[in-house]
Amino acid sequence: MKKIVLSALAVMAFGTLAQAEPLKIGVAAEPYPPFTAPDANGNWVGWEVDFMIAICAEAKLECVITPTAWDGIIPALTSGQIDVIMSSMSITAEREKTIDFSDKYYATPISMIANKGAVGSPDVAGLTGKILGIQVSTSQEAYAQKYFADAVAETKTYQTQDEVNQDLAAGRIDAMLMDALPGADFLKSEAGMACCELVGSVADDVEILGNGTGFGLRKGDPLKDTLNAAIKAIRDNGTYDAITKQYFDFDIYGAVN
């Protein structure tokens, strides 16, 4: 009896070894609609999720979504808890010191959203003496540190975009910088319509914003070539545009390099 159990265990062990581990796709646990957000049943939905399904089908990979706290998502990747970061992460030189990125799969500008009438223009003049709120460890934060650090009265940083939105709606901050797409969604929400308005997009800065959003990968991971090929393939065969049409009424890919 013991022998049978042992051999069964051995088969199970080797069976799992033979089968490739599914690729763990790290998504920030905090909802980021319309890209990644859990629906009422707890399933992850959104543009990025559909995009991932298309990529994994194209590259014949088995992928599972692994929610990970945003502020620990890079350590989670480097320590092997996840294999790929897919969380609207902008490709930046600073991050590239620690991780690799695939080619970009979308690129959107940064919006400045403010309490109605609080800020005149999305630049230094408009923000002088104001309180600015940003989610920590984002390109928006890097942008604010570079351009607005001296102009603003105070910069407040938050762990999630939800908290920035709440404090803007509560009037504790005058303005926030956020990605244009979820920003548009916030402005359409009840709280957003009541309190706030779009001031405009901030001036472009290739150094901070110019590279768009890519998959984050461990340094030297050969997966990079596989994903790049898959991104190119679904861009060419129209799958990318088909997915985008379900969520946006404009092209989110940005300039074609």
């Binding site: 309180i131 908290e163 709440q166 404090d167 709606a169 509560a170 009037g171 504790r172 709280a191 009541a194």
Partner: peptide, 25 residues
Amino acid sequence: YYGLGSLFPGTWVQKSDLWPLLRQA
């Protein structure tokens, strides 16, 4: 912080003299 804060928009609190204080964390 967030619970009370969500009650403030559009009320007298935001126009009162206490607002500069209540605005801070």
